Computed example of a mutant assay.
Amino acid sequence: MELDIKQIMARLPHRYPMLLVDRVLEMTPGKSIVAIKNVTLNEPFFNGHFPGNPVMPGVYIIEALAQAAALFSFEGNTELNPADKRVAYYLVGVDGARFRKPVVPGDQLRLEVDADRISRVMCKYTAKATVDGEVVAEAKIMCAIRVVEES
């Protein structure tokens, strides 16, 4: 299953500058995903990280992996869809994060996430990001699902 940017935006509540998934290449609902983030010099974080030597912050790479995870975790589950304003999907844990190589403008970040466990309240994943076949970041990530009370 592939998704373009319009289909991604229909599934995630994130918008510029925090939407960090541009395309889904492969997705097995509830199991795994391969997605793409095209890294451009126009990213707002490059203004200060670092002037004259732009490097994508590691926290943004982890956030991109968590967004990719949300896409496949709830595909077809209308009860727990993070695009639903009554449900919030929070990144709550990162273990074993390693950043192996800088990600710079012009890179295409390949986001690969596998589900270790998905439940109604907590999800755990094994995630890695690559550029040109080389691992640039990897981590175990955990996300919590919360129903948001309407005011």
Rank of each mutant, 00 (worst) to 15 (best):
E134C: 04
D114Q: 13
R120E: 14
P57E: 02
V87E: 02
V87P: 03
H49A: 04
M27T: 09
V21S: 10
I141Q: 01
D95G: 05
I8S: 08
A88L: 12
C123G: 15
F50A: 05
A68L: 14
L80Y: 14
T28S: 10
K128M: 09
M142G: 03
I33D: 00
V55L: 00
V131G: 02
P17H: 08
I118F: 00
G96W: 08
N81D: 13
R100A: 11
V147Y: 10
Y125P: 03
R86H: 15
R23G: 01
K128N: 05
E26N: 13
V113C: 02
K128R: 14
K101A: 08
V131T: 10
K140M: 08
L12M: 12
G93S: 10
P102C: 05
G52D: 10
L109M: 07
A88K: 12
Y125E: 05
N38D: 12
A10D: 12
N42G: 10
I62F: 04
G30T: 11
V59P: 00
L12C: 11
L109T: 11
D22E: 10
L41H: 03
K37N: 07
V135E: 12
V24C: 06
L65F: 13
R110W: 01
A127P: 04
R86M: 12
R23V: 08
E134M: 09
I8Y: 08
S119H: 06
A127D: 04
I118E: 00
V136M: 02
D22A: 11
G96N: 14
E79T: 15
D116L: 14
M9R: 15
